[in-house]
Design a binder for these strands. Sequence first.
DNA 1: TAAATGTTGTTGCTAATATAACAACAAGGT
DNA 2: ACCTTGTTGTTATATTAGCAACAACATTTA
Lengths: 263, 263
Amino acid sequence: MTAPRDIPNNLLESLKSLGLTKYEALVYIGLLRVAGATATEVHETSGVPRASVYPVLDRLVQKELVCVSHTTPKRFDAVPPDRGVENLMRRIESDAENARKTLDAIYREKGPEVRGSQELIWTIYGEENIKTRLAEMFRRAERSVEVLAANDLLEGGVLALLNDVLGSVQVDIVTDRLPGERPSRFGIHILPLAAPCEVHPTQGKLLPYERSGVFLVDDARTLLWLGSSGEQPSALYSESAGFVQFVRRHIASVTERARAAGQ
Amino acid sequence: MTAPRDIPNNLLESLKSLGLTKYEALVYIGLLRVAGATATEVHETSGVPRASVYPVLDRLVQKELVCVSHTTPKRFDAVPPDRGVENLMRRIESDAENARKTLDAIYREKGPEVRGSQELIWTIYGEENIKTRLAEMFRRAERSVEVLAANDLLEGGVLALLNDVLGSVQVDIVTDRLPGERPSRFGIHILPLAAPCEVHPTQGKLLPYERSGVFLVDDARTLLWLGSSGEQPSALYSESAGFVQFVRRHIASVTERARAAGQ
DNA sequence: TAAATGTTGTTGCTAATATAACAACAAGGT
DNA sequence: ACCTTGTTGTTATATTAGCAACAACATTTA
C-alpha cells in the first residue's frame, strides 16, 4: 500500500478491535473526508488498491457503515462516526451477551464449591477482579473479618463491599483514618499505618500503606491487595494454612506496633 | 487440534469478536470447567497443543481472564464469565470511545454542507441509520414536511423525531390511523392507505402500507422508507429533482385516491 | 547412588488461514 | 480508439494454529 499518511496508528488499532480490517478502516476514514465518492475516488483517498476497494465497500455497507447511491458509477458515503461506531458496538454487545450466557451455563455445570480452594496462592490482576473476589470472601464469611487497609483503599469501594457481611460476623477494621460515618457494627481502630523502615533503614524513609490492604476471613482465607501507585493493582489470594498464619502474624505485629507508636 | 468437542460454534465466533483467538477461547472455556488446572491439564481439557498453552495463558492473564497461582507447577483459574466478558468489553468500549472521538474530528474537518447533496439516490441500510437521516432532514426543514406513512412506522419512533421540526414549518401527515394525542400544530389526515393492486390484479390482493413511509421536506429532499416485514429495513434518500418530482406525484396520487375511496 | 522415567516450561520451526496487494480483462461510455 | 468501472484471478505477507525437540527439574527404579 502507499502511505497511510496522517492517520493516527491507534485509530487503526481501535477500529480493528471493533472488528474492522485495516482496509475497512482506511476506506471508512477516507469516506469521512470526501462524501459521495466513487470507488476510484475512495481508492485514491484511502490508499487501498482499487481492486480491493469493491469487496471492502460491500462489507462496509453490510456493517452499516456506508450507504450507496443508485447511480453508475455507484457513489458511496460514510455514516456519521458516532452512529457508525454505535452500529459496530451493537453487534459486539450482542456477541458479548451471547458469550456471557453460554459461558455462564458452562461455568455453572460444575458445582460452585469445586472452585478456588486448595493450598495455593493465587495472583489476581485488575482492580475489578480483586473486588469481585473480595466481595465473595465477605459474602461467605461465617465468623470473623479482619481488615488492615489504608484509607484510600476503603474509600475506593472496599468499605461498600463490607455491607454484604452477615450481621453475626465480627468485623474489625484497622486503618489510618476514616472520614464519614463509621458503621457501628464494625470494630474500627484508627492507627498510623505508615511505618518507619527499621530493618533496612535506607534513608529513614517511611513505608506507606498506600493503595494496599490485608484481608482475613474466618482465619482461613486471606487476600493481600498489592497496589503500586499509578499501576494496575494486583492481589494474592490464598486459603493455605501457612500463608494464612503469616498474614495473621502480619496483622498482629502491625497493629501492635502502630498502637505502641500511637500512644 | 483434536476435537473442539461440544462447544457451540457461535460461542467461538462471539469470543473472537470480543478479541480472543480460537486458542484463547478454547483455553478459557476449558478453564471454566476445571478450576485450578496445571498447564498440562489445560492442554487436555481444551485440546490446544501443550506447547501453545503457555503463551495463550500468558495472554489470557494479561487480558484479565485468568489468574495464576504461585506454585510449581503453576496453576490457572478462570475469572467468572460475567466478570470476564465485562473485562473484555471494557477494553473494547475504550477503543470505541477513542475511535469515535478521532473519527469525529476527521469528520468535522470538512464543512458540514459538503455532505450528501447532488443529484443522487442513496440507499441506507438499518433502521437506526434511517432514523438518523430522517432526524437530520426534519431538523433542517425550512418550509414544509410531508409524511405519508403507516401507523406502525409513526408509532415506532418516527413521530417523536417530528418534534424537532421548527414551529414555522408546515407539517402534513397522512396515515391510516393515529391513536394517542395528535400534536395540534400538525395537519393530520387519516385515510385508508392500503390500496387494491389495480394495475396487476393478481388475486385482488391489497398492497398494504406496512412498515413503509414516504417523507418529503421543503419539496427538495425525500426519503422512501422501504420496510419488508421481518427483515432489516432499507431506505432511499435523494435530493434529485426528478426523484423528488416522482415522490410528489406519488403522495398526491395516493392521497387523492385514498380520499376518494374513503368518502 | 546412578540410571531411567516423567513432567514442566521454552524455543524454534512448519502449516494453515486470513488479509493485503497486484495484474489482467470484460463491459460500457466518451 | 480511449478511458473508466467493476470483476476475477493470482501472488505476497502477516497472523494464527500446530508440531517437534530440548533443558531443567523432580520421581521412580535398579
